[in-house]
Every structure is written in structure tokens, then in C-alpha cells.
Simulated scan of single mutants.
Amino acid sequence: MSSNSIPEFPVGFFSDMGSLELLACTGCALGPTLSSKTFEFRNGAIRDIHLSWNSLSTLEVDAITGLQPNTVLYVSYNDIRELTEESFRPMLKILSLGDGYIFLGCEILLVHDA
């Protein structure tokens, strides 16, 4: 789905996707707010979620649920300026049980004097 303008998904769209392991939705124009239950995974198989380059600034509570302990969530190159406890702690609680993590990497600019 990457690089397609998909500003929102119907609630529950991903909840019954049996063996979905990887979701790549980079550059899909999802921002600025990722609403509650947008990415609700109930299959127990999700391993990689790529949501970079979406101009996201806010993740509502339970915007992403159903992560597994080894899931990797990529939200780099967005406009997230605050990691709210309500939104991120539930995800981190699950990810801390395994090797999963949230990748918040950003571009580093080096400025050289002329």
C-alpha cells in the first residue's frame, strides 16, 4: 500500500486478516492524527508495521493494537513531537516482553561551515 494516498481505513479493517505479518503503509498520507482502532490486529501474527513518512503528529489511544512481543513498528520521518504515555505505554509494555521495538529514527542533518 506504500506511496498511495489512503487517508484512513475503516475501523476493524485489519482485525480479521488471518496471517498478516507485514504491513507497509509508508507515505500513505495518514496524518496528522492516527485515530483510535485504525490499526487493530487480532491475528497474533503481525511482525512488521511500516508507517513512516505519513506526516503523523498524534497517535490517539489504541490507534495501534494487537502488537506481539517481537513486532517492530516503524514510525520514523513523521511529525511526532510528544510520546504520550497513554498512546505509547501499552505498546511498549507488550514489546518489552520480547525483542520488538518502536523505531522513531529521524534524519540527521550535518551543517558544515563554508
Results as ranks from 00 to 15, higher is better:
60 E>M: 10
76 S>I: 00
18 G>A: 07
90 P>R: 01
83 L>Y: 15
54 N>H: 10
58 T>N: 04
11 V>N: 07
73 L>D: 04
14 F>I: 02
42 R>D: 07
76 S>A: 13
91 M>I: 05
12 G>N: 14
18 G>F: 00
65 T>G: 06
70 N>I: 03
78 N>C: 13
56 L>D: 04
15 S>C: 07
1 M>P: 09
37 K>F: 11
18 G>C: 07
11 V>P: 11
109 L>N: 11
91 M>E: 02
37 K>P: 04
81 R>K: 06
58 T>K: 07
5 S>I: 07
72 V>S: 11
8 E>H: 12
67 L>T: 05
105 G>V: 00
83 L>F: 13
46 I>K: 00
106 C>P: 02
79 D>W: 02
103 F>S: 14
112 H>P: 03
38 T>I: 03
37 K>I: 00
20 L>T: 12
12 G>E: 07
81 R>D: 14
98 G>C: 10
18 G>L: 01
57 S>W: 06
21 E>R: 15
5 S>A: 14
59 L>Y: 08
36 S>N: 11
31 G>I: 10
65 T>P: 11
104 L>M: 14
48 D>W: 01
100 G>S: 10
8 E>W: 08
51 L>Q: 04
96 S>Y: 09
16 D>P: 01
53 W>P: 01
108 I>V: 15
2 S>D: 13
103 F>G: 09
56 L>A: 09
75 V>C: 12
25 C>R: 00
72 V>F: 01
103 F>P: 00
56 L>H: 12
107 E>P: 09
30 L>Y: 05
